[in-house]
Design a protein around this nucleic acid. Structure first.
Length: 957
RNA sequence: GGGCGCUUAGCUCAGCGGGAGAGCGUUCCCUUCACACGGGAGAGGUCGUAGGUUCAAUCCCUACAGCGCCCACCA
């Protein structure tokens, strides 16, 4: 068998040999070894799958994907498409640490549908793949690994050694998600895969940083940041999640200066309310509302801060709400965002009561540390230095209580900021950090969307985008991590900062500044991961070099992403793209929903309700999963995924498989140059018409990002039109004696099947590609890969007459079946057309054989009236009778007719009320009035026929 | 507190100004030669509630109720 190198020949031979099942089993086992390639055993395996009744995705998908890769099918800029229009999408880069979850599966399925669709439309498609270095996540993974292997910790091994370890980890495990994307069928141009920390992208990051710094759009500032006490780094506002938490509200008594504190005399103290008593160590004022009569006389006086002994002023500030708490609030500028602002307004000192250094000394096991600055007045017995913040809280409260300084405590639930990764309570912390002036960069990004240059789909997300962009805050971009792009800033001995692309350049600048050679120390911090992601649409195309790719594929065509990263990513790409490219990064942004579990809960590891897409692929195939996601991706609603649904679409794949199998068994092979418009058989003209109609609808739906509509149309077309009716109706022709008609029908069955494969390919790439290969004849000059074949644009196949004719057959068969089922008749029965028109009689003549077969009718005749005692019904306005005297239950038939009559009466009544309404007649559009009149006529006809049928039934009894 | 969205058949969801749709489930019939991961036929809904606009409202507007999400808020 080995010398049967040609796959197609091998297939044909194997089909002729028709191996018995047991032998095939042995061959399949041979196949289970060895890597890919077209081993003969594999060919047999594929053939045997064709012969088997069900399609086995796991046998096929890997091989098909390798075929695509070997053919370089997904490569952008294929020479033969040099003149084609470009179409580009950048993948939302998954974390290198990631593994494929449902969100990825949905996101990438939709992108793949678009890319495959556009590729088949002849465009030069670039789907730019890559991964994100994911600063915190990756660093955490490697640190955990070190711990598990009981190796030295990060700090012990030092920065350089640690980073080396991370790179090693990346080389080893960083490709996981890429392979998983391949299993999903993603048609990315893998030859262009990028990583946010590879050389090129890192250069882009440095350049952006330096240029923004020089433009004054990046600056260093000492202000409050969200500090993550577990990860020991600043994080941005977006990385903070607000969580409803149960806590307490404490009301504390602050003694007023020059009064002797007496717990029973309210005039000797002022009560302040707080949920964070430990921060009182850093209080620098007490604020009341300027109009608050209770405190008016106290403004300008001082209180003595308990435990600390510091004298702090009582100030008046509008921020204070007299309704809340006691109406007086402690002000801690170094530990609260609002207080920070109050402090600035009143020029208050900022006293930082925490120290990172203390925490670092402890090698990071406990939580945050209170490092109270030494103060001569400080209650020496407190001994808080080096204490966890929540322990410090308890200590402080105990001491305050002892002194009668706690007025009251009440439970209260409030919203507390938590780190989105560490899940610990965030501390507002006063440090030096790097910021991007987002407000400035946001301006053109807002204008671009307002002007419709970039469009969001669905459009309502634009509002979200505007709301955020218009209130955007400075973006804190520095992170106290090691894994990431180290900030290109160097400091001189006096702390002066030099920002440059390289240390060499910084040194030159420093020398110019100081007038002599100096040593510089580099800023230790790295940049927020999203900083490099923001450059993704142009950094991946080679920027800052002026590459051909940049010219050709920027701006990208579409961005497909979830709403949860509009702020993190989309908005920032808009800002950076417009600033550095002077051009929007993408024309359209398609925002898709979240994937939830079957009961609507967000999937999360902790809840244990995560559905693993890979497990679904294993069980049902990638195609079934993809189709499910596409079918459920209606705009504006979350997807509740259930495996039942996936199973249903697996069945759909099997249905398609069997339809193709039917075609093969009936020798329906693709005919080169076949023109469906030239078909003579009405049935064939009909399926051509239906195929064209489906193709148009699918095309329009994909172009409008209505993936669910596209999926619904293709599903219905394949199953309910092609399989249920066309193939069934084609059977007599295929088995008939008319060679010309047989030949035409064979060609048409194959043609429609091929069009189906194309239309379905973006949704179900594997099975369609496999069937394409199986059905490719070696002599045929068709595109070798379905993925590179041409998308159906079918014009001139409309055929109203065929639609009417086949429609009549379908209606007739359906009606007969319905009566049979209702009357419980299994035997073959005769059919009488009562008072049928010449046209109908001719039709019946033409379709006799088909009707007999599909409706199990013994013979068809016509007469002027229905025979007595027959069951009668209406098909397209004419009476059809089944003479079943003696077979049917006359009472039941009368009941059925009476029910029909009731319905007809109701229809007439409903239409009549409209037609008798002068307002309707006067104001409704003419065509609507006409429609109503027609409905009335139709209902009256029905009534007449039913009346006649009831009469005849009477006669029969 | 500000904003967005949802409420349609038992379940999951389409539809969104002129006679209620799909998938799954369910009931009945069918191992007929592509397919039981199948074929055929049914049952099942006052389209959240109350008003309004309109000749006409599941669809548009308003209010209300319930559910969900985003943003802001550690007095």
């Amino acid at each position: 068998i080995d010398w049967l190198a040609n796959e197609a020949i091998a297939r044909r031979v194997m089909a002729l040999v028709a191996l018995p099942r047991d032998i095939r089993g042995i061959e399949d086992k041979v196949d289970s070894g060895g890597p890919g390639g077209l081993s003969t055993a594999r060919v047999i395996s594929s053939k045997s799958a064709m012969i088997d009744k069900t399609y086995q995705p796991s046998d096929v998908e890997g091989r098909i994907y390798r075929t695509w890769e070997q053919a370089d099918a997904f490569r952008a800029g294929r020479p033969e498409r040099a003149d084609a229009k470009p179409y580009s999408i950048v993948i939302p880069p998954p974390n290198v640490t990631g593994s494929l979850h449902m969100g990825h599966a949905l996101n990438n399925t939709l992108q793949d549908i678009l890319c495959r669709f556009e590729r088949m439309n002849g465009k030069d498609v670039l789907w730019q793949p890559g991964t994100d270095h994911a600063g915190i996540a990756t660093q955490m993974v490697v640190e955990r690994q070190l711990m598990e292997r009981q190796e030295k910790g990060r700090r012990d091994m030092g920065r350089e050694a640690f980073l080396k370890r991370v790179w090693e980890w990346k080389a080893e495990s960083g490709g996981t998600i890429i392979n998983q994307l391949k299993r999903l069928g993603a048609s990315c141009d893998w030859s262009r895969e990028r990583f946010t920390m590879d050389e090129g992208l890192s250069r882009a990051v440095l350049k952006v940083f330096v240029e923004l710094y020089r433009a004054g759009l990046i600056y260093k500032d000492k202000r409050l940041v969200n500090w993550d006490p577990k990860l020991l780094t600043a994080i941005s506002d977006l990385e903070v999640i607000q969580a409803e938490t149960k806590g307490y509200l404490w009301q504390l008594r602050y003694p007023i200066e020059r009064k002797t504190f007496n717990p029973d005399d309210p005039s000797t103290f002022i009560v302040v309310a707080t949920t964070r008593p430990e921060t009182m160590l850093g209080d620098t004022a007490v604020a009341v509302h300027p109009d608050d009569e209770r405190y008016k006389n106290l403004v300008g006086r001082n209180v003595i801060l308990p435990l600390v002994g510091r004298k702090i002023p009582i100030i008046a500030d509008d921020y204070t709400d007299p309704e809340k708490g006691s109406g007086a609030v402690k002000v801690t500028p170094a530990h609260d965002f609002n207080d920070f602002e109050i402090g600035k307004r009143h020029n208050l000192p900022q006293i930082n009561i925490f120290s990172v250094e203390a925490k670092l000394q402890l090698k990071g096991n406990a939580d945050f540390i209170a490092g109270v600055p030494k103060s001569p007045d400080l209650d020496a017995t407190l001994a808080l230095h080096g204490t966890d913040r929540f322990v410090a809280r308890k200590t402080i409260l105990r001491r305050l209580e002892e002194k009668g300084l706690v007025e009251k405590v009440e439970p209260q639930s409030h919203v507390v900021p938590h780190g989105d990764r560490s899940h610990v309570v965030i501390e507002p912390f006063l440090t030096d950090q790097w910021y991007v002036n987002a407000k400035e960069l946001a301006k053109p990004a807002i204008v671009a969307v307002r002007a419709g240059k970039t469009r969001f789909i669905p459009k309502n997300w634009e509002k979200t985008y505007f709301d955020w962009m218009e209130n955007i805050q400075p973006w804190c971009i520095s992170r106290q991590l090691w894994w990431g792009h180290q900030i290109p800033a160097w400091y001189g001995p006096d702390g002066k900062v030099f920002v440059a692309m390289t240390e060499g350049e910084a040194l030159v600048e420093a020398q110019r500044h100081y007038g002599k050679k100096t040593t510089l120390t580099r800023d230790e911090d790295v940049l927020d991961t999203w900083f490099s992601s923001a450059l993704w649409p142009f950094s991946t195309l080679g920027w800052p070099d002026k590459t051909n790719e940049l010219r050709r594929y920027y701006p990208t065509s579409t961005l497909v992403t979830g709403f949860d990263i509009i702020f993190f990513w989309v908005a920032r790409m808009m800002m950076m793209g417009l600033h550095f490219m002077k051009e929007i990064p993408f024309d359209e942004v398609y925002i898709h929903a979240l994937v939830r579990d079957a009961s609507g809960a967000k999937m999360s590891k902790s809840k244990g309700n995560v559905i693993d897409p890979l497990a679904l692929i294993d069980e049902y195939g990638a195609d079934a999963l993809r189709f499910t996601l596409a079918a459920m991706a209606a705009q504006g609603r979350d997807i509740k995924l259930s495996t039942q649904r996936v199973e249903g679409y697996r069945n759909f794949a099997t249905k398609l498989w069997n339809a193709a199998r039917f075609a093969e068994m009936n020798s329906c092979t693709s005919v080169q140059g076949f023109n469906p418009g030239s078909a003579e058989e009405t049935l064939n003209r009909w399926i051509a018409h239906e195929t064209a109609k489906a193709a148009t609808e699918i095309t329009e739906a994909i172009e409008a990002y209505r993936f669910n509509d596209a999926a619904a149309v293709v599903y219905r077309f394949v199953w309910n039109i092609y399989c249920d009716w066309y193939l069934e109706l084609a059977k007599p022709l295929l088995a008939g004696a008319d060679e010309a008609s047989k030949r035409e029908t064979r060609a048409m069955v194959a043609w429609a099947r091929d069009e189906i494969l194309k239309l379905l390919h973006p949704f179900m790439p594997f099975i369609t590609e496999e069937l394409w290969a199986i059905t490719s004849e070696p002599v045929m000059m068709r595109e070798k890969l379905l993925a590179l074949s041409e998308w159906p644009r079918l014009n001139g196949l409309e055929d109203k007459a065929a639609e009417t004719e086949i429609g009549w057959v379908i209606d007739l068969v359906t009606a007969i079946r319905s009566v049979r089922a209702e009357m419980n008749i299994t035997a073959s029965i005769p059919l009488v057309l009562a008072g049928a028109s010449v046209e109908t009689k001719a039709r019946a003549e033409r379709w006799t054989e088909f009707i007999k077969r599909l409706a199990r009718v013994s013979e068809i005749s016509s007469s002027s009236t229905a025979p007595r005692g027959s069951v009668q019904f209406i098909v397209r306005g004419e009476t059809v009778a089944l003479p079943l005297k003696g077979v049917i239950d006359l009472a039941a038939e009368r009941a059925r007719l009476e029910k029909e009559m009731q319905k007809a009466d109701a229809d007439v009544a409903r239409v009549d009320t409209k037609l008798k309404n002068p307002n309707f007649m006067a104001r409704a559009p003419e065509e609507v009035v006409e429609e109503e009149k027609e409905k009335r006529e139709e209902a009256l006809d029905r009534k007449a026929i039913i009346t006649a049928a009831l009469e005849r039934l009477k006669g029969a009894t």
